[in-house]
Design a protein around this nucleic acid. Structure first.
Lengths: 402, 402
DNA sequence: GGCTTTTGTTGCACCGTAGGACTTAATCGG
DNA sequence: CCGATTAAGTCCTACGGTGCAACAAAAGCC
């Protein structure tokens, strides 16, 4: 929390800042490139001299953050380049607790999933201690699969609620029925000493996997609104490739954008929230299906001609159009990525939704808003949590040089 | 415009980057401080050594960007400090074209208004060339008032519409009836050679004066939504003290947040936009008053018991509550600042509006959203335009060292 | 008046990057 | 097969900017 109206004291840049900054830049350049780059490539793309680039790369290589691949003699003249790759020995643990799934994953600097475990079930109204114990157990199993030489640089835990990351507290997670939980108290027993999981919001971290396909590597979109269809509707705003966490962690709550002030009351105290039309429970109830039915069943039912299912989908689409248009007008964002159950309904929703947005979004005449579905990852927020931890290394590799 | 999915090549930090960065930091420290600081204060607050701070200050002093005030012997032991102040010889020109007012202002590094001219009138549907000629004339008059030794470091022009700042084009300004105008073509004749005005959106620049009370000095709020009540309703999102311009300059258009999907059609093509309830024209028409009546007349009429005026205010308040709550839920912002005619209605709107927001904003239980009125400045966007130009100097003073 | 305290300055050391010469490892051409 | 060419990577010195510590300056305190 910052004190309003006062600038926080900014630190002066010193010699070591240069090294930190440039080491990070070199590492990010290696990680961002779709194809392996050489020391000379780095020098060219960053503008530093070959000697400087070379020295920084050497430091990163000896720390294991960058690896030299075999020189493959190509059809080019001159001394062949040494291809550089993100190191395989640096990795992070990503954990996820969701109302319907627990996940633990280890992801390395190259974005490769080294090990993972998923468990499906129902944790609505579960006991925080018991559930976190389960996740801790998963984490321990996954960590046992990790090769000996691998170095864990951090861990993250994705939670479907509002978190105070600085204090490590989950303030409230309505879908789980949890509030004021401090996961570190339970997780510490299962994790290696010194490895404590940074908390993050599920939608924020899932959005990160869209913005960043691997640590430091830009993903499909740089500026977008991520809408996470869960029991309710969560979301995240991504600007310039970075997830906006907001002043106190509450940012991105598209589920509570008001679609109709005279609409049904929402558990948040307001009326006509988007969640009341497009949340999974609301949607399935309106369609006359059991509330744990799958999105595919809903689509099949509608396709079979069931009027209630069709109507529920249309209502959800119209509500999404109103809510998303409002957000897009305020944020001037070109793209909406649908995740969770909304992602699986994207094919059905997209055409009508894009048409609605084209009439409701002010800038649509210049650039038509696009709707996309998130990838098929079964636990994107777990990967996002690992990416978050790995991001600390990319931002400042100095602490990881032996 | 950035190419999506690709990281733009970032430049490596070099020795000169240190100097640039630290010179800027020292200058901003001097400008940000409410009371004059000394070289030693700067060293302490930035963490650099006294010798480094001293050297950087000397450079800024000899360039006129910082001034040494008289040493005033205080009641403290030790050698008295030399108080440092923002230089008086660096200033920028701020211009504003509005539907009802033209303005030209010169503001110096300390935030002092050196000279200004305002002209009221009606420029709705005006000819761009003629109107810009008028502003250019104002600018020339104002510049003639500026002392000889003063150095103009830049200029800005605030316009009530969507601008492409990079290309210097006003895309569209519905209130003026302008589109695709390149002001530089007309203004160049009135401004000194080399001084070209950077374009900005009126609401964005007005919001900047709230975020920044003088160049580099934090204002009353750091994170807020600025709502500019003009003929329509504009706005700006300010996060971490910086105005979000959005991907293509369309950000902050709160006026077109949907308040009621079944509401009246808006000129933007959507229905039930906030502007249809809280825009000046809509509000006055609903109250049965002429559309150029003042906000004070509306308040007086309502206070006198006129039911139409009272109802119009209540409708506007409820619409604002729905729209603002949606935005606040997505952005996690604690404060709304009302400007333009809405600022003058703030006293009437605030109590009810804050209550409505308290029930509609998700995080209100933890932190109640607050409504504030913008200051009484008659042309805030002109000042904002000047601040924008001065901001370039604060960001990188190196170009201004002789 | 001498002591204390804090500000501002000066000279030297250190650190990291810049630049250019040199080495290395490949292709190409005779 | 061998030298010319080309580009990658390394090494050494120079330079620029900050850190450090000693010193000078200007006040209050006793």
């Amino acid at each position: 929390m910052t004190i309003e109206g006062r600038a926080e004291p900014q630190a002066a840049a010193r010699q070591s800042t240069l090294r930190t900054s440039n080491l990070g830049l070199v590492l990010r350049t290696v990680c961002a490139a779709p194809d392996p780059v050489s020391r000379a490539d780095i020098a060219v793309s960053t503008g530093m001299t070959r000697s400087t680039a070379s020295r920084l790369v050497d430091d990163l290589v000896s720390a294991g953050l960058v690896e030299e691949a075999e020189r493959t003699a190509g059809p080019v003249r001159g001394r062949p380049a040494t291809p550089l790759l993100p190191g395989r020995t640096a990795a992070a643990l990503g954990l996820q607790v969701d109302a319907g799934r627990l996940a633990a994953r280890v992801v390395d600097l190259g974005g490769r999933v080294v090990a993972e475990r998923l468990v499906d079930g129902d944790w609505v109204g579960s006991d925080p201690g018991t559930t976190l114990d389960q996740v801790g157990g998963l984490a321990a199993v996954v960590l046992a699969d990790v090769p000996e030489e691998m170095r864990l640089v951090g861990a993250g835990l994705a939670l479907p609620g509002i978190v105070d990351a600085a204090r490590g507290v989950l303030l409230r997670a309505p879908n789980l029925g949890w509030h004021d939980v401090r996961p570190a108290d339970v997780l510490a027993a299962h994790l290696p000493a010194g490895l404590d999981a940074v908390l993050g919001n599920e939608a924020d971290l899932a959005a990160r996997t869209v913005a960043e396909s691997a640590p430091g590597r830009p993903g499909a979109h740089r500026d977008f609104l991520y809408v996470s269809g869960q029991i309710g509707v969560g979301g995240a705003v991504v600007l310039d490739g970075r997830v906006m966490r907001g002043n106190a962690g509450w940012a991105g709550e598209v589920g509570h954008v008001c679609v109709d002030p005279d609409g049904p009351p929402c558990r948040c105290g307001s009326t006509g929230c988007l969640e009341q039309y497009a949340g999974r429970h609301a949607l399935l109830a309106a369609a006359g299906l059991p509330r744990d039915a799958s999105p595919d069943l809903l689509l099949d039912t509608a396709a079979a001609g069931d009027p209630r299912a069709r109507a529920a989908l249309d209502v959800a689409r119209r509500a999404l159009a109103v809510a998303l248009a409002s957000v897009l007008n305020v944020l001037d964002i070109p793209t909406v990525v649908l995740g969770g159950h909304l992602g699986r309904l994207a094919t059905d929703l997209r055409p009508g939704l894009e048409d609605d947005l084209a009439t409701r979004v002010l800038s649509a005449r210049w650039r038509r808003p696009r709707i996309e579905a998130a990838g098929p990852d079964s636990a994107p927020a777990a990967t996002g949590a690992a990416l978050h931890a790995l991001g600390d290394v990319l931002a400042d590799p100095v602490g990881w040089l032996d």
